[in-house]
Amino acid sequence: MNIIRNLFLIPITLLFINCHAKVKSDTNTTANNIVAKKTILSSAELQKNETAYFASGCFWCVEAIFESVKGVKEVVSGYSGGKEQNPTYEQVAYGRTGHAEAVEVYYDPEVISYSKLVQVFFGSHDPTTFNRQGPDRGAQYRSIAFYKNEEEEKIIRDYIAALEENMVYDAPIVTEIIAFDKFWKAEEYHQDFERRNPNQSYVRAVSVPRLNRFKQNFKSFLKEETH
Results as ranks from 00 to 15, higher is better:
103 V>I: 15
40 I>V: 15
77 S>M: 08
120 V>L: 02
34 I>C: 09
126 D>P: 08
48 K>G: 00
96 R>D: 07
115 S>N: 13
116 K>R: 13
95 G>F: 03
17 I>Q: 08
74 E>L: 05
56 S>C: 12
71 G>L: 04
31 A>I: 03
47 Q>S: 14
129 T>I: 10
63 E>W: 07
21 A>S: 12
33 N>T: 11
98 G>S: 06
77 S>A: 06
89 Y>W: 01
49 N>Q: 05
41 L>Y: 15
110 E>K: 15
98 G>D: 06
118 V>M: 12
127 P>N: 11
112 I>G: 04
108 D>F: 05
130 F>M: 12
107 Y>N: 02
36 A>D: 15
44 A>W: 02
42 S>R: 11
38 K>P: 14
105 V>S: 01
124 S>Q: 12
82 G>R: 03
111 V>E: 14
36 A>Q: 15
25 S>E: 14
73 K>A: 11
92 V>S: 00
15 L>I: 02
56 S>T: 12
88 T>Q: 07
105 V>Q: 00
43 S>P: 00
93 A>H: 12
50 E>R: 07
117 L>M: 03
42 S>E: 11
94 Y>K: 04
22 K>R: 02
56 S>L: 11
39 T>N: 08
99 H>S: 13
45 E>R: 08
46 L>I: 05
84 E>D: 10
24 K>E: 15
41 L>F: 15
98 G>F: 05
106 Y>C: 03
15 L>Y: 09
91 Q>I: 00
101 E>M: 01
40 I>W: 13
53 Y>C: 04
89 Y>P: 00
19 C>S: 11
21 A>K: 10
53 Y>Q: 12
39 T>P: 07
16 F>I: 08
72 V>I: 06
116 K>E: 14
121 F>P: 02
113 S>K: 14
67 E>H: 10
52 A>N: 02
25 S>D: 14
72 V>D: 00
56 S>D: 12
121 F>Q: 01
32 N>F: 10
53 Y>R: 07
114 Y>F: 09
87 P>A: 13
75 V>T: 06
84 E>T: 13
106 Y>H: 15
107 Y>F: 15
93 A>L: 10
78 G>Q: 05
36 A>C: 15
60 W>N: 14
58 C>K: 00
131 N>C: 06
49 N>R: 04
102 A>D: 01
66 F>A: 11
55 A>V: 04
117 L>G: 04
108 D>C: 10
55 A>K: 07
19 C>D: 13
119 Q>D: 00
82 G>V: 02
115 S>D: 14
123 G>H: 05
123 G>T: 04
79 Y>P: 00
61 C>L: 04
119 Q>Y: 00
91 Q>S: 02
57 G>V: 02
125 H>W: 10
100 A>V: 09
54 F>K: 01
42 S>I: 13
116 K>W: 02
84 E>Y: 04
126 D>T: 07
119 Q>L: 03
107 Y>R: 03
51 T>S: 01
61 C>F: 05
128 T>R: 13
81 G>W: 02
52 A>D: 02
26 D>V: 09
101 E>R: 00
51 T>Q: 08
37 K>E: 14
64 A>N: 10
45 E>S: 09
109 P>Q: 04
19 C>K: 10
125 H>G: 10
71 G>D: 04
